Simulated scan of single mutants.
Amino acid sequence: MSTDYQQAREAFGISLRELRFTCPSGNLTGTQLASALGWPHSKIYKCEGGRQTITEADLRRWVDACGQPEQLPGMLARLRGFESQIRSWRRQLSAGHAPVQSSWNVEVGRSHVIHAWEEAVLPGMVQTADYARHIFTRYGTFFGSTQDAEEAVRVRAQRQEWIYQRGHTLKVIVWEAALRARVCPPQVLAAQLDRLAGLVGMDSVELGIVPFTAPLKLPTANGFWIFDDRLVVTEDWHAELWLDDADNVSLYGRVWATLDDSAVYGSDAHNVINAARRALNAR
């Protein structure tokens, strides 16, 4: 969890505690508030201590129980502000992958230049439908979320139209491992590699590949996307992080440029793709 996010959650917890201490009818103890809300006593102190993020529904009940409903609009705005930066997969995938893809489509549609780095999977903007279908199915199974792979594939395919629109540039770097990862059947991966090879040389796509043999100035790590110079989206197993502050956008830009120093393009990129394709056929 990011330091900024945790600090915001702890500060919000202090505000929750202040509501309890300033009830018009007199201070409430944590035990009294828990009893009024029908919650375990521990939940009060987890929320106040920044160890648990309160939901919007629970916040509404909290301010009402503290007799201060007029505080709700301001506190909701604060909660939504820091919650928008870290988007848990549990919460996002409760309705399946398609709504998540729709959110991405909005940000892609607002952008003119997108930088991307992926170390273990090929980027969604260049995936074939079959490859994407296997990715969505595997994640859906792992997280136990709604299985909506077909709809998610359709929404992702809509996003790929962005590449063919005038004035757009996709600058993507992938590690060679992403070309060889068996996240789908061999025939699906073979077709995906063929599509990737066909993108080399496109006016709107700059495809770089970091070979296994390339010297690295930084270790390969989590994938991330930079939308123009205004937003970074990166992910971990628990959540996506949406970062729009200038310092973080600049940091990820430096990371991308550093990884780019190890990438090959053009015919050299074709050679790496072809080597992965031959290795696939040899098995």
Rank of each mutant, 00 (worst) to 15 (best):
V126S: 02
S42G: 04
I44M: 00
Q92A: 13
Q160W: 06
Q68I: 12
W62Q: 01
I135H: 05
P211Y: 01
A57E: 15
Q92P: 12
F136A: 01
Q71F: 13
H112F: 06
S88F: 09
A98M: 04
A77D: 15
V200D: 00
R91G: 15
E176A: 06
S250L: 07
V153H: 02
L76W: 07
V108T: 01
E48R: 06
W117A: 00
Q52G: 05
R90T: 15
Y265N: 02
D148E: 07
H238D: 13
A239P: 02
E56I: 01
A98I: 03
H238P: 06
E176W: 01
R159I: 09
I44W: 01
S94T: 15
A221H: 11
A34G: 02
V232L: 00
E161C: 09
R182I: 03
N27V: 14
I44C: 03
E150K: 06
Q187T: 13
D244H: 10
R182Q: 11
V249M: 04
G208N: 04
V255Q: 10
A36S: 09
I226R: 02
L199K: 05
R166S: 12
L170W: 15
T220H: 07
W162E: 09
P219G: 07
L122W: 01
T22M: 14
A95G: 08
D247M: 06
L218S: 09
A197L: 07
